[in-house]
Design a protein around this nucleic acid. Structure first.
Lengths: 212, 212
DNA sequence: TAAGTTACCAAACATACGTTCACCAATGAC
DNA sequence: GTCATTGGTGAACGTATGTTTGGTAACTTA
């Protein structure tokens, strides 16, 4: 078993040319399965294989085990959420700091409402979530820090907060999460339409000056 | 199969005299199992039977199926939570309205912190939760209404709120739930000790006058 | 004592899951 | 063409679950 990798520089990796394609296809099918059936318990190797149209054993060509599949999904989901919130932050139609903050939280709520299965997966597996880029804290804490920065920007823009920016961010972030979680646990009891206005009011509450 | 129940008025129900006793013993064992192992997936018929010291089949003498066992647990848990919050409301050392409100929310947080498995079971099975006494809304909504009443009492006592009492109650209740849920999803990341002070600050925030 | 009811159990049934194994098929390198 | 490599598969293994069944022992009632 001598290592000869230094001899053949360019090893063949994808004889069929569709190695990575099927991997993402598996992830997409898992995501759809999670969206349609909701709970994490709906995410089974056999179910994913059935959705993709391959044999259960074939999954193991692309993922070491089920935990690796979940990690792949988490990575995919967190990147998606972070992108939507970043886009919301940098979007042109809201040049002011408070508007960006509102857009950011609105994007967060929209993601949680439109992807309940994913959102719950992300929050129930925070330990397994892959760290963004060698950072100490997890991806959700990274996103929460985005909100802290947005609040600090509001302070820098001259707005007055009733509590320090870091605490204000936690209040709003945690409030949004709680409101979404309560809707998830009983969607018929309340209307998803009320979530975004609620968070908007929560944001207004932490500001001492009027920010409509 | 003629119904003769009107002839023998007093039917024998517990030949051994421990019919109900074992039923509650099963519930208690389930509760302990849920507390020690955390997740709802730890609540299995076989596990409960092993914990009680009986055969799995014996469970079905007291509960129609696993769902009925969960319903029994929910009933037990919601009653426990409601009692703790009622006690907090009627306790003597806090005669003022704001103090009672704070004690109530503190009791809520304490319950969620000390019984994470139960708390998650309650919120993940809100649909299956038995309605208190023929009421329209579920038990959690009933508890949330308790907070609304507490806020209205504060208003009646002369305190000024930044938002209507019903909305203030939702903000605080939802904030507490969100804060607790985040701690549950990653207990090592934050300290449980911070939850109660956080909710206290949240309460102060919705009041326009100083209520320390 | 005899009948009837209840609590309980050992064993099995049916299902679903994650995972592994031996094997086949297609492809690029030589 | 030959061959190693890789993607894919059917069938099985091992495990865990909820649930049912047939039967036994304990107790009340008559």
């Amino acid at each position: 078993m001598t290592d000869q990798s230094h001899l053949t520089l360019q090893r063949t990796r994808n004889p069929w040319g569709q190695g990575e394609k099927l991997r993402t296809e598996i992830l997409v099918a898992s995501a759809r399965l999670l969206s349609e059936l909701g709970g994490e318990e709906a995410l089974t190797i056999r179910g994913v294989a059935r959705a993709v149209g391959i044999a259960p054993a074939s999954i193991y060509q692309h993922f070491a085990d089920k935990a690796a599949l979940v990690v792949g999904l988490l990575e995919y989901d967190y990147q998606r959420l972070a992108e939507e919130m970043h886009i919301a932050r940098d979007s042109l139609p809201v040049p002011d700091a408070v508007g960006r903050l509102r857009a950011q939280m609105r994007a967060y709520c929209r993601f949680a409402i439109e992807n309940p299965g994913h959102y719950r997966l992300m929050l129930n597996n925070r330990q397994a979530a892959p760290k963004p880029d060698g950072a100490e804290r997890g991806p959700l804490a990274e996103i929460a820090n985005l909100v802290v920065l947005a609040f600090e920007a509001c302070g820098a823009a001259g707005h007055r907060l009733r509590v320090p920016a870091s605490k204000a961010a936690i209040m709003v972030f945690v409030g949004a999460h709680g409101r979404v979680a309560l809707w998830h646990s009983s969607p018929d009891e309340t209307d998803a339409q009320d979530i975004v206005p609620f968070v908007d009011e929560l944001i207004s509450l932490v500001f001492a000056d009027s920010v409509d």
